[in-house]
Design a protein around this nucleic acid. Structure first.
Lengths: 263, 263
DNA sequence: CGCTAAGTTGAGAGATGTCAAATATAGTGG
DNA sequence: CCACTATATTTGACATCTCTCAACTTAGCG
């Protein structure tokens, strides 16, 4: 009744003609006994918002773990949509590839984030998911998850909530791209990453960026030179310290002020 | 068991302090016998993708119709989320209000589109929905819809598909805002509206824009002057004819070329 | 130790924004 | 029906931000 439950060792099918995908793809999956209940990420991940005593509901999911090497692709635009993926370690970016080959980073996923929701629109992934560093994901069979949550009032709204959150995040991103200056975008980006790192038990003031300047620029709709210059400018004003990929937020309020009160 | 089913004649609660909402709000609702099966919008709206003979599944939804006057608000950021709304006539824009009061248009809804999905993130609407002209919506109790679709394999994925589509649309919008010039954004906007008008049985080459230049600008992250100048420029090149809000697309391929092949 | 990718910095160009003024349009009340 | 007002639109001149192109520096890696 349930579809095959191993993440498919997806055939390396050729991408649809007009979309060249330069990234390699890795697939290495094995089943896991996967008790969400004991996962360190349970408060952020799929079970977020589900009461402690109801976590066992997820035991019936046949999850499997899959490794993705830095730079490799978890899935690509057009791939059939069968699984959601929870980031278990490492991080990912989502990118959209235009017909002319240009692609833009549209999202950043850290531990506990769920990738692949856009695939539910029409059965095929609408974006690419690329590992920013060596990473592991839990593959969650979507159909099984749908059935599971539908039959349980405690988990009834899990999928809807996940998707709606993604919608809200995307809308905020549009607001950012539409109304904010380069400086504000960079400040907002740093605060966003900081907040999420903190929520995951890391320092909220000091962290290692996994993205290159070009990737950050692609995410914020800026050129890499502009990102670099903006970092410098923020550093000159003692708001942050940036050494290559290492970031320290010196004045979070100052950064927040940049975003909240300008214009 | 089901929550109250009339769209609430929502109390005109004061908006949360930091968010000034200049729009008025109208509420006039009445129950409808609502056979989605016979609605002229059934192929676009909620039932889209559900087989003809399964449409009766929606008969058990207690829908109600609500009128919203031009310029009025269907819901606002922070309002409790109880209903999705299907546009039955007229059109809406979604806007996001920043803490400093600036707001940006993030979406445009035509007949058959579903509003309010972002509310499922945390039980409160995350955006404002403003009528661009006198409009009517069908209010769909979300909780009831969830239950209904969960128990029916033919409609199991309706909500997920709706939300995922919104995610895909938002991602495309980000791509547009991030990588396209003013001219490309305007061209893309016109083609998008044209396509959707056509899908709704109107002309795909000639239509009446309901948004002002400022609203279009806000949607495309451009200033109204830029929108105006871009319209002129496209008109000078015989790609479109624009008279105030009346638009005629003279050369759809030309517009498409603008988007697909540049840079 | 050299090679390559990533990052920094500068100078100048170009796209879009800003400000201001002139029209045009729609709605309102007499 | 008309005058009047507020709103929307167009257009121009100029400012500014970000991009482009190019050179150079640094870091990471075999």
């Amino acid at each position: 009744m349930h579809p095959a439950v191993t993440p498919s060792l997806r055939p390396r099918h050729q991408p649809p003609a007009p979309l060249p995908f330069p990234m390699r793809s890795s697939a290495a999956a094995h089943a896991i006994a996967s008790p969400c209940a004991t996962c360190r990420l349970r408060d952020i991940c799929l079970p977020a918002g589900v009461h402690e005593e109801q976590l066992s509901a997820f035991d019936r999911l046949t999850l499997s773990r899959r490794k993705v090497a830095a730079g490799d692709c978890l899935y690509r635009q057009g791939d059939p949509f069968l699984f959601l993926y929870a980031v278990h370690s490492g991080s990912f970016k989502a990118t959209l590839t235009r017909r002319d080959g240009i692609d833009q980073t549209t999202n950043l996923f850290l531990g506990g984030d769920i990738l692949g929701l856009d695939g539910a629109a029409n059965g095929a992934h609408a974006s690419n998911a690329v590992a920013l560093e060596d990473a592991e994901v839990c593959a969650i069979p979507y159909d099984q998850l749908t059935r599971l949550t539908a039959g349980n009032s405690a988990t009834q709204h899990v999928i809807g909530r996940l998707m709606a959150r993604e919608i809200v995040r995307d809308q905020r991103m549009m607001l950012m791209l539409g109304t904010m200056s380069a400086e504000q975008r960079v400040a907002g980006f740093l605060l966003n990453v900081a907040r999420r790192m903190k929520a995951r038990g890391y320092s909220g003031t000091e962290f290692h960026l996994r993205m290159t300047r070009a990737e950050i620029g692609s995410y914020l709709a800026l050129k890499l030179e502009t990102v670099s210059r903006t970092f410098r400018s923020l550093q000159d004003r003692r708001l942050v310290e940036v050494n290559q990929k290492h970031v320290r937020i010196c004045d979070p309020e100052g950064l927040a002020r940049l975003i909240g009160l300008n214009e």
